[in-house]
Design a protein around this nucleic acid. Structure first.
Lengths: 186, 186
DNA sequence: AGCGACATGTAATACGTTACATGATTGG
DNA sequence: CCAATCATGTAACGTATTACATGTCGCT
């Protein structure tokens, strides 16, 4: 149940609602973990039963009430014990790479179009991460404690997006070049 | 059912058995798609029913019989139509990055140890990919057709592994430096 | 009047993982 | 003799996705 660790990690400094947690998975955290609100609400309930969290209902005016979850000492222990445990690289199932692999069967131009779309997607993503880097981590060499670890995770997101963009460029150039060769031949 | 596309992609040039397909997901294909033999056998059965594949049982001496699956014209159509379809980036759930994000709660040294392990893992992976690159793709600039697309997918695996190694190095250096700062302070 | 943000949930279904199950051959 | 490779499958379980469900407020 690895989602539980991800949720606890987001609850380290302050209590949050399920809705709030769901939104955080759409931000920079999304570069290494994704979860929908349905998953989150279910998991939060189970974690509260196990004593990793406790909750408090906050009555709000003009908005629905919300349930704030806070990490318990037991939860902190559970998370701390897990860090450094043997971890496996996550399973990747990347449609676009299956498409690339089978690219020879594609309608001409279809694959290139999708590669371009993907490139743009990661460019947008990267711009967002870069802004977070500028805003929250001005002097990265001096970081210690929680801020450092948040920064390192963000750096992974930045690198991941950059790597995608670079590969898309490489693939698009190679496909264009091979088409030029084929055209010259016949 | 995206697994079906991955299986068809592996069946483009020659018929293969379920066992054979399972092994290919452990090779370079594993950098962008993973599937266990149980999933594969189930999916192959369903795909045959739908007419994307047909099969032939091959009697072998000294070995169990095997069932060779071949892509049908319908299967080829199905795969070709899918390529270039709008695809989403795959969902990532990377334990090691949750650990990094929550690194401040770790037992000292535990996270660094796991980062080092992960680094080695990708170094081994990368060495394997590099060998494939040397053996099968001697002159990448001249590639066309199926060979080009296989090469581009392999390139993604190479880049992915390189990127992991580089990030692990960066993270390890940053953690070491922050510990030095903390030690100097008090 | 309609949309998006806020806020929380249930239910059904699809998908993936783990365990169980079998059995011959080859190499160390 | 033990482990690994070849080869195919079933069953149970856990997790994730998708659809359904409700309701207020503020903005355009």
């Amino acid at each position: 149940m690895a989602l539980s660790h991800a949720l606890l990690a987001l609850l380290i400094d302050e209590p949050r609602s399920g809705y709030d947690l769901a939104r955080r998975f759409e931000g920079s955290i999304g570069s290494f973990w994704k979860a929908t609100h349905q998953q989150i609400y279910r998991e939060l309930g189970q974690m509260e039963q196990k004593g990793y969290l406790d909750s408090e209902t906050v009555v709000q005016e003009g908005r629905p009430n919300k349930k704030l979850y806070r990490m318990t000492e037991k939860g902190r222990q559970y998370l701390g014990d897990w860090i450094g445990t043997v971890s496996e690289p996550c399973v990747i199932r990347e449609d676009l790479l299956v498409m690339t692999f089978a690219g020879a069967l594609a309608v001409p131009g279809a694959l290139a179009g999708e590669l371009q779309r993907r490139r743009e997607l990661h460019r947008t993503e990267l711009a967002g991460y870069r802004e977070m880097e500028r805003e929250h981590y001005a002097e990265p060499e001096k970081l210690t404690g929680p801020a450092l670890y948040g920064y390192l995770a963000l750096r992974r997101g930045i690198r991941y997006a950059e790597e995608w963009i670079a590969w898309c460029d490489e693939a698009l150039a190679a496909i264009a070049q091979s088409e030029a060769i084929s055209a010259a031949r016949g």
